[in-house]
Design a protein around this nucleic acid. Structure first.
Lengths: 153, 153
DNA sequence: TATTGTTATACTCTATAACTATA
DNA sequence: TATAGTTATAGAGTATAACAATA
């Protein structure tokens, strides 16, 4: 992906028109930046896609989680989550354990290797905030997250 | 896409852990909501994908624009933009005109049909803000856009 | 009959590389 | 040699539908 994060040379003196009021448009452009930062700090070094990273973080914070809840939290469909978990399981990062109380459902749990990688990933993610600080103060970051949380939380 | 916009029944009492501080994660979840609203208000009724809508809005606001600038403004690659413009041109919504000053470049311009559809789309997009108002006050929306603009603008 | 999770399949999106033509 | 735009191709992401097992 060829995106320049810092410099924006001939920054397209384009009027946004009606787009200026469309929240989704601004979300998409902001995502382009955070995606680049994520790839640099976490994705490439640890070989983790965004969704995989999110799964690891949720498992790190919640120990045993049924796939259903993961799917909800990540806003992905059940089949997508199955494939996601398959990949992480093949890398030996997590286990799927049967739920003794309900034969239909499971618990997903990090292996030891998964816990180590998740901890590394969490540590690698922290400097991303610092990277954003060029654009947004810590207070602005907090405000932004709060507003986004109201939308998508 | 099965996403419930209003009700969030058993809202997954999951801790986000380190994810709570990751801006990109919240951007993704917020995008899930705005994508649903977009699809309802604009995408399905007018048969316009998000990127197509954005192109129309930019052309509406700027008359003649070189593809290069469109690609920058939308944060898409040049090949992606070519395909995007191809589709819109086939629907008779825009023309590509040669740039008399530079044989390599072009100007993209809306046709009359394109202008009509763009105007309809802009009108259809306005109520989306109202839809968001369940979650965010107008002041909060403005603040959110301002913060996102600092990130991705 | 409803729910959890999986499989199968297809479609959209987007990226990289290679090419054409102008400059 | 560099730039604007295109073509070709492949990979990642994600949706729907159909299915299995359990409740």
């Amino acid at each position: 992906m060829i995106v320049r994060v810092r410099a924006r040379p001939d920054a397209a003196a384009l009027s946004l028109g009606p787009l200026a009021r469309v929240v989704g448009f601004h979300l998409a452009r902001a995502s382009a930046l955070t995606a680049v930062l994520y790839e640099r700090h976490v994705g490439a070094p640890l070989n983790l896609r965004k969704a995989e990273f999110s799964v690891l973080m949720l498992l790190l914070a919640n120990r045993a989680v049924p796939p259903k809840q993961l799917a909800q939290a990540l806003a992905v469909t059940a089949p997508a989550l199955t494939l996601l978990l398959d990949r992480l399981q093949q890398r030996g990062l997590l286990r799927r354990e049967p739920n003794p109380r309900d034969g239909r459902s499971q618990h997903v749990v990090l292996t030891e290797a998964g816990q180590r990688l998740a901890a590394d990933a969490a540590a690698a993610a922290a400097p991303m905030e610092a990277g954003l600080r060029e654009r947004l103060s810590p207070a602005e970051q907090a405000m932004l997250i709060e507003l986004l949380e109201k939308l998508g939380g």
